[in-house]
Design a protein around this nucleic acid. Structure first.
Lengths: 116, 116
DNA sequence: CTGAGTGTACGCAGATCATCGAACACCCTG
DNA sequence: CAGGGTGTTCGATGATCTGCGTACACTCAG
């Protein structure tokens, strides 16, 4: 049967579920580097000001193209700061506040306070 | 003999007193970037484990040459983390713990705890 | 003065990072 | 199926950072 013939496209799709890293496994260096970038700081602050799963990736006001934005989200995921979930064509976001805070107490608050 | 004739050498000397930045004027981004580097983390931890003005620049156990080490110290100074004072041929160091802590509460402790 | 010890400045190589445009995959609606 | 909307990946570019060797300035001890 040759089967459903869903030819492997050799290209990772948008629908590949996002790869997450738990804050508990994140090195301090990774966390600091992730939070040092101004664009990512903005993302984190806007995330903190909204409820879980409220904001989609394209809903953030940052002066970069969507390609760059996508990279920033990946960095935040790898730093254990962000959780993402697919909802239709959109990808919804949640700040992993409690989990990250347990791992690096005070760090997230520091970023939220400065420049807020 | 016409004077000692100390010709201006046009090259900044070692003895130029170190340029310091007060923690109160340091942007969060600068602080995070300074503390993200593994070598600088080691320096900060060793500094924290010693008394003020106890350690000279060359007394740190890090796997870099002294030229690179000198650069790292400059970064720490610009981040408001380090104060330096000349004592004879040596340059003594002090971690600006209280001042930095007032500006970024908890950040330094985070670095000292992780990997200590 | 000479020499050893200490630390900085400069210039270069290599690595990493942020950014972009373009191409692509996916979802939903019509 | 066609098309608009959403988000990812790829490749290239420019900037920044770390690292090193070298040269140099300074201090102190002989």
């Amino acid at each position: 049967m040759t089967a459903p013939s869903r030819q492997p496209t050799a290209v990772t799709s948008h629908r590949t579920p996002p790869v997450h890293t738990h804050p508990g496994e994140v090195p301090l260096e990774t966390a600091l580097l992730a939070l040092a970038d101004p664009v990512r700081q903005t993302l984190v602050r806007e995330l903190a000001g909204a409820g879980d799963w409220e904001r989609s990736c394209g809903s953030f006001d940052v002066p970069v193209t969507k390609a760059t934005l996508s990279r920033h989200f990946a960095v935040l995921r790898e730093a254990g700061l962000l959780e993402q979930r697919d909802a239709g064509p959109k990808r919804l976001n949640r700040l992993r506040r409690a989990e990250f805070d347990e791992r690096f107490p005070g760090l997230l608050d520091l970023v939220l306070r400065h420049g807020g």
